[in-house]
Design a protein around this nucleic acid. Sequence first.
DNA 1: TTGTACGCGTTATCAA
DNA 2: TTGATAACGCGTACAA
Lengths: 351, 351
Amino acid sequence: LNSNVTLKQIADELGVSAMTVSRAVNHPDKVDSKTLKRVLETAHRLGYTPNHVAKSLVSSRTYTIGVVIPEISHSFFPEVVRGIEEIAYNTNYQLFLTNSAESSEREQKAVDALRSKRVDGILISCAQTTTADTYYRQLVKTGWPLVFFDRCAENIGASCVSVNDKASSRRITQHLINLGYTRIAHLSGSQKLSIGKKRLEGFIEALQDADLAIRPDWQVESGFQEKGGYEAMKKLLNLPLKDRPRAVVAVNDPAAFGAIDAIRDHGLSIPGDIAIVGFSDDIRAKLIPCPLTTVRQPAYQVGTVAADKLIRTIENSDEQVEYIEVGTEIIIRASCGSTSEMHASKHSYTV
Amino acid sequence: LNSNVTLKQIADELGVSAMTVSRAVNHPDKVDSKTLKRVLETAHRLGYTPNHVAKSLVSSRTYTIGVVIPEISHSFFPEVVRGIEEIAYNTNYQLFLTNSAESSEREQKAVDALRSKRVDGILISCAQTTTADTYYRQLVKTGWPLVFFDRCAENIGASCVSVNDKASSRRITQHLINLGYTRIAHLSGSQKLSIGKKRLEGFIEALQDADLAIRPDWQVESGFQEKGGYEAMKKLLNLPLKDRPRAVVAVNDPAAFGAIDAIRDHGLSIPGDIAIVGFSDDIRAKLIPCPLTTVRQPAYQVGTVAADKLIRTIENSDEQVEYIEVGTEIIIRASCGSTSEMHASKHSYTV
DNA sequence: TTGTACGCGTTATCAA
DNA sequence: TTGATAACGCGTACAA
């Protein structure tokens, strides 16, 4: 029953050689139409399924790619995986999915396992705890096709597909400036992570472009969680009234949610007293009482672009290393306040 | 560089046989401690990674399982996959993830691909369009370890892990009854799908247990989307006042959301005029103005249980076919209304 | 058009 | 303790 049918079994059944059966299956035109028919017929009858394990052993190609993500449940990565899956499906690759669970140790184990499986290439989004980029460097040196996505190890000679963090942060800050706000603060993420750094940079650039004051006391590190957002916002609200910002750019939506709670707890209203914008378009962003203006990340597209780049890297030995940024979309809702012109114009645009 | 190191290369380097190297790597105790050391040292130096493709060819075991899900982005399946991944990680299996995108044709192609990869077993959740259970029967007949999860093909001799649909539906209906409601309607899902059928059955049983009237005009098919929920609720609201239900059990949360809109549009309040409960604990359920009482499905647990069952089926040739149901949790919020006793008691319990 | 020989990287088996 | 051989299923290269 479970004993898998082989070319040889079919061959024996028909009194031909295994080679003939192989040809019938893979190169139908290279075999006599009559034997072809007989072969295919019995192949079907016996339930033949080509053994890719054996095929891979001889061809050194598995038509398999490994994906390492740090977090399965958060809505961003499933959507990325869907994009990867779509490309893989269209190009006849299979996907090994592994979860590093934000542990760099587990991440390395995953990569080793994928290497043992002889995947043709690896897509990886770094665990937050990752420090060891020496590991990545070694990996790159082995020549395995490797593409980072979203969370990238930079300058190690591997391609990278990510969201346009800096430009997006700058753009949403500019949106506040265009609405007339001049006293704008930033709740920032960890400066050890590229997204934390880039979003802060974009924020600062926007202020510089508009010749607005860049005040250190208006840059508070909140981290990426609600709790940190709440605490950080508290600090801003506890400033003397004359030093209080009029608008806030949060590093992401959860931080913004925390900040919103703090603002409410302080008896202030949004956007009347303080305007706020987020980043990531969390599913809750549009559902809260004062819907949050934010940056939508094209997760699906990150997946398709990364998978596409990886497969080109696999199939094209002289494919160049690239740093690809995909554009985001500013989603304008109520939390930033709005001018009359805003109502007349369209309510989202891309960066 | 990319040329992978083989046992033989290490062997040649040291002037021993490939067999000795193999033993050193896999059975350290069966080799002289001195040669062991030499072998491991050069293996490390050359960056040797065992070739699982070759291993699989001889052992007929790939330590790989295939997962077929109908929908990657919805929050339920990522959580299931996370559970599967956790078990796979602990047992050293790798996961092939494939997406049928609710197409039974694509589902079959996925399964064929997985068979070609010689996965040790398959976990599958049926596409909604699936009709061809003859295909599943054939698959089972080949003896391939196979476990269905969430959406199951029943009575075909394969194990199945799913949520306790009928009991949960009955339980949440009973909750309404306990609160004193007697005029209760059901917005049902397609009766062609097991979850649609089972949830209706549970609803009816609860009414029967309480000797309440089971009125056909209070069973409206809404399907699983908001729009259907809205339309179905409209029908109930358009009944003569004396025939209008006082409470509604929706087949899932989206249908409930649609119904809620309809109730609002009709100028009625929740739960004051009409109480409503859902099923699935959609992320929005707790965020809407009148938070929705609903059934939370333990997605992660569905994943771990299904993966565990599959691996037992793989590794234990006389493992029995089982239909496993995992319990749900009733999440009590405002939409069902509440009595004073309710406030005193705990606000969730398991079925 | 069809068949034979060999090798892909590994391990089980038996012999030394 | 170590090595030689064969086999896993398939495809390339060559021969008939």
